[in-house]
């Protein structure tokens, strides 16, 4: 039986460099892609998400080949490095954005948002603009927004790099705990060895980009 996530020889080439990755992941587990900046780990993440089209290779999730599926329709969520929250929308409309995209009414979207806000200890934040949030609150909102559409796989692109040291240590504990308690399958991209070891069940080391 094949693994829950199977990334097979996924490759992207540019004139001067290329990036390739092969790995697999069990349901409910987590993996950290570790490597120096510029080694292509974010590109691998973006190929899995469908934001970058690979030149060759395949991605299958839960037995389904999603290599060519549209981003957003493959059940893959992502927490961006800068969180990419929508600054013109309130916290609840950020979290409700995904459910509404998939057919929920705005009201239902807000109800879903309220549930996630409660789960993440953010009650009372529904009407706030995202500009007024602290770094830690932003990260929680970004994660809640990603989980609100119940993705089959959650990708984290340098989830802690925008934070100061103290907050980083607190939040990485929080991230680890949430992944265990909510049971989602996760891939983290990071350049920090200790962070990789702490966050994930397994660590995949990526070296510099290979020649094309």
């Amino acid at each position: 039986m094949s693994a829950y996530l199977d990334v097979r020889d996924l490759r992207k080439r540019w004139p001067a460099r290329s990036v390739a990755a092969s790995f697999s992941l069990e349901k409910g587990s987590s993996l950290a892609l570790l490597g120096p900046s510029g080694c292509g780990k974010s590109t691998v993440l973006r190929m899995i998400a469908g934001l970058v089209t690979p030149d060759s290779g395949s991605v299958s999730l839960d037995g389904e080949d999603i290599t060519r599926a549209r981003a957003g329709l493959r059940g893959v969520g992502m927490v961006f490095q800068d969180y990419a929250l929508f600054p013109h929308l309130s916290v609840e409309d950020n979290i409700g954005y995904g459910p509404v995209s998939f057919g929920a009414t705005r009201r239902e979207g807000r109800a879903i948002a309220a549930k996630w806000l409660e789960r993440f200890g953010l009650e009372g934040f529904a009407k706030r603009k995202v500009d007024s949030l602290s770094g830690g609150e932003r990260q929680r909102v970004a994660l809640a927004r990603t989980l609100a559409v119940r993705p089959r796989l959650v990708l984290f692109d340098e989830p802690l790099s925008a934070l100061d040291t103290e907050l980083r240590e607190r939040l990485r504990g929080e991230l680890r705990e949430r992944q265990k308690s909510l049971g989602y399958t996760a891939i983290y991209v990071t350049h920090d060895e200790a962070e990789a070891a702490f966050l994930a069940d397994a660590v995949l080391r990526m070296d510099g980009p290979v020649a094309p």
């Binding site: 549209r70 981003a71 957003g72 992502m78 800068d82 990419a84 995904g98 995209s101 927004r145 559409v149």
Partner: peptide, 15 residues
């Protein structure tokens, strides 16, 4: 305009 916001929207299923 921020590129990652549009990517986030796409990942959240927005056409």
């Amino acid at each position: 305009l921020d590129g990652s916001e549009l990517e986030a929207a796409a990942l959240l299923g927005a056409s």
